[in-house]
Simulated scan of single mutants.
Amino acid sequence: MKLSGQGYYSGDLSMYRVDGPSLASARIYKGGKTSSSSRAVHDYWRRWAQEGDKVCTGGMMTGEQCGWKVTDTQATVHYTSGSTAKNMVVARETSGACTIGGDSGGPVSTVDSAGRAYAKGIRSGGGGGGSDNSGGLFDPCSLVFTDIGLANSAFPGTVARY
């Protein structure tokens, strides 16, 4: 998406307002899709994603998945729906389950050795894995996300942190 007044594409982002007594906090669920366990977001990643970065993702349908490795940055992605997103980050994994529809909008993070989560991006899409929806050497899973730096520069304020 290209926001009004900006000369660059900001990936795949949306913003919503939380009204009333609802509260939002900077936490990421960990574990399977039915887990109620979470970890605080310690901070956001202070540099743009780079090839080789290791990331985790979380989604409503598949839960937390780690082991992703960034393979491309500033990518143009063409979705099967016909839409196109620019300035996206692509990551792959060759073992484990792929993300599926319904995981979009989930967090992408890096978790350090102390278990602290750093916000890295926002999941947009992915797929792969062949008929069993599981990554392998010949049918890797793919993850497409918007870098947290684009979210911070596109919208007012910054990502909340612990």
Rank of each mutant, 00 (worst) to 15 (best):
K2F: 01
Q6R: 12
Q6T: 10
G11V: 02
D12C: 11
D12I: 07
S14Q: 12
S14G: 13
R17P: 00
R17N: 14
V18C: 15
G20S: 09
P21L: 13
L23R: 15
L23S: 14
A24V: 13
S25K: 13
A26I: 02
A26E: 07
R27T: 10
R27G: 05
R27S: 07
I28C: 12
Y29P: 09
K30Y: 05
K30C: 10
G31E: 11
G31P: 00
G32I: 04
G32H: 10
K33P: 04
T34K: 15
T34A: 15
S37M: 12
R39N: 12
R39W: 03
V41W: 02
V41K: 03
V41S: 05
R46W: 02
R47V: 08
R47M: 09
R47Q: 11
W48P: 05
W48D: 15
A49T: 04
A49D: 09
A49K: 03
Q50W: 00
Q50A: 14
E51K: 11
E51N: 12
G52M: 09
K54I: 02
V55H: 03
C56A: 13
T57F: 02
T57H: 06
G58E: 08
G59F: 01
G59I: 02
M60S: 15
T62N: 09
G63D: 10
G63H: 06
E64A: 13
E64H: 03
C66P: 01
C66L: 03
C66R: 04
G67D: 11
W68D: 12
W68N: 11
K69S: 12
T71K: 11
D72E: 14
Q74V: 05
T76G: 10
T76P: 03
V77H: 04
V77Q: 07
H78K: 15
H78M: 14
H78N: 15
G82N: 06
G82R: 08
G82Q: 09
K86N: 13
N87Q: 09
V89A: 04
V90L: 14
V90N: 07
R92L: 10
E93T: 12
G96V: 01
G96P: 00
G96C: 06
C98Y: 01
C98W: 02
T99H: 08
G101M: 08
G101V: 03
G101A: 11
G101W: 00
G102L: 07
G102C: 09
D103Q: 06
S104E: 10
S104R: 08
S104P: 00
G105I: 10
G105M: 11
G106W: 00
V108P: 01
T110H: 06
V111I: 14
D112K: 05
R116L: 14
R116K: 13
Y118F: 14
A119T: 08
A119C: 06
K120A: 14
I122V: 14
G128E: 04
G128Q: 03
G128V: 01
G129K: 05
S131T: 10
D132G: 04
D132P: 01
D132K: 10
G135M: 08
G135Y: 05
G136I: 05
L137H: 04
D139F: 02
P140G: 02
P140A: 01
S142L: 05
S142G: 07
V144G: 06
F145A: 14
F145C: 14
D147P: 00
I148G: 08
G149M: 07
N152W: 00
S153D: 06
A154K: 06
P156Y: 11
V159P: 00
A160C: 07
R161W: 02
Y162F: 11
Y162W: 08
